[in-house]
Design a protein around this nucleic acid. Structure first.
Length: 432
RNA sequence: UGGGGCGUAGCUCAACCGGCAGAGCGCCUGGCUGUUAACCAGGAGGUUGGUGGUUCGAACCCACCCGCCCCAGCCA
């Protein structure tokens, strides 16, 4: 195999009229007796190969029947522009080599059930909708890195194995750590906060784990979370950063993932309309509004999914709900000086998917934080290092967590987060 | 964990009131020089999720169990 003549499908436009070799996997074949068509995917695009019995060596023509779905091949021939071909180009095949056979490939270009597809996730990844969704995920990850790099944030990788607890016990995955209990991280937040005095603006971005027995289209037990943390930023600064980030992500995906959104049949009208500022409504005002719209919600209770849906329908873009009751939020959130029943926090809600972001200003007063830890009956000793942050130069700071899969599901319009991560971990799925 | 739905060929699904278990796709064989989920002809492929019960007779009715999906709770 002469590597010098191997060409990627995405650059075929530069090789029209020339002979090239394509390496890839067969998506489908159609044979008509003395002419055959083969669709090859090489990971950069699709190209159609045209095989004429009269123009192929006898041996190569015989190979046609062994070109089964997903076998790997080397295809050699002249490139032609052909608008009718998937990908816009076709190759008049003059040489054909079977690299790896593929017998009884399980996934057909037909409808399949969810369970079957998830059981074959390692093969399902090759399908067009899955490729499109995961490519958007990749774009969003890169956009996140670019956004924070451009703003002088330092990326801090927080531990996945921890001895201390993130938010609430009972939803932690436990592991054995040389005889001691260890837990898979639910959040990197407490750790990333500690890097603020070192770098001022920081973020962590990695997998997090929740042993929640939830079975909804918005939850995974292992998901990727972006968690920025900014020193000397209050809750309002925090919301402005979230707004800027979400606008940037939408812009990037519209600009660079247009092809993928088309494959996914995403109507992008609502994304194109998104611009700062987003609506901001206090929890208290939201409750009043929801009650007017017929919700049973009462002040003090957390917003349920139906409430969030109803609320987002009142706005034409993502909406911030801020200053929730202290009782329904985490211990580390800053008590609201104007109304001690509430904390300085916010959720960012979008239509159909609910909470994309949860954020807050952090409690920076040592005594008040201790009171909250005791109220929640949390083990004080494991938080000693977190409390040190308030002992040695405490400072106003805020941050938030953005769920990657939920964000990508929203951007692509796919209904379920399980398709937005290569290998979803769900309550009842640990394989493949 | 609660509410609702479902489980039949490799896959997606039919099967009327309880009466011979079927189709499409995929696969195999043959035909065809421009197909786009190609088409035409033929073929193979079944312990109807499991156990027990009712009945002359169960894919179908009943009980229990297993599995999956959707919604809710929890959250990102």
């Amino acid at each position: 195999m002469n590597q010098a003549e191997i060409t990627e499908v995405r650059s075929l436009g530069d090789h029209v009229g020339k002979s090239v070799t394509i390496l890839g996997w067969v998506e489908s074949t159609r044979s008509h007796g003395k002419v055959g068509f083969v669709i090859v995917r090489d990971g950069t695009g699709l190209v159609q190969g045209v095989l004429l019995k009269a123009e192929l060596p006898e041996d190569d023509w015989g190979l046609l029947e062994s070109l089964t779905q997903e076998c790997s091949v080397a295809l050699t021939g002249e490139v032609r522009a052909e608008p009718r071909a998937p990908g816009g180009h076709e190759i008049g095949v003059t040489g054909l080599e079977l690299l790896g056979a593929s017998e009884d490939y399980p996934i057909q270009p037909k409808e399949h059930g969810v369970e079957f597809l998830l059981d074959h996730r390692h093969l399902w990844l090759r399908s067009s909708l899955q490729r499109a969704g995961l490519r958007v995920r990749h774009e969003v990850q890169q956009a996140i890195a670019d956004f924070f790099y451009d703003r002088d944030f330092v990326r801090i990788d927080t531990p996945i194995l921890t001895g201390s607890i993130g938010e609430s016990a009972g939803t932690l995955f436990e592991a054995d750590y040389f005889g001691e209990p260890a837990y898979l991280a639910q959040t990197g937040q407490l750790y990333v906060e500690t890097a603020c005095p070192a770098f001022r603006k920081v973020y962590c971005f990695g997998p997090t784990f929740r042993a929640e027995k939830s079975k909804t289209r918005r939850h995974l037990t292992e998901f990727w979370m972006l968690e920025p943390e900014v020193a000397f930023a209050d809750s309002d600064d925090n919301m402005r950063l979230q707004e800027d980030l979400v606008c940037y992500l939408v812009e990037r995906v519209l600009e660079r993932s247009a092809k993928e959104l088309e494959v996914l049949e995403r109507d992008t009208a609502d994304l194109e309309a998104i611009a700062a500022p987003f609506a901001r409504i206090s929890y208290t005002d939201a409750v009043t509004l929801l009650q007017e719209k017929g919700s049973e919600i009462e002040w003090g209770r957390d917003l349920g999914a139906p409430d969030e849906m109803l609320l987002t329908e009142q706005f034409d873009r993502p909406v911030f709900v801020h200053d929730y009751p202290k009782a329904v939020k985490a211990f580390y959130m800053k008590e609201n000086p104007d109304d001690p029943r509430t904390v300085r926090c916010n959720d960012l809600l979008v239509r159909e998917y609910g909470e994309l972001i949860g954020g807050s200003q952090r409690e920076d007063d040592l005594d008040r934080l201790l009171v909250r830890i005791r109220e929640e009956k949390l083990p004080e000793d494991v938080y000693s290092w977190y409390l040190d942050l308030r002992r040695y130069g405490t400072f106003v700071h805020s941050g938030f967590g953005l769920g990657l899969e939920r964000t990508v599901a929203w951007l692509t319009g796919r209904p379920h987060v399980r398709e937005m991560i290569p290998y979803p971990r769900l309550m009842n799925r640990l394989a493949p």
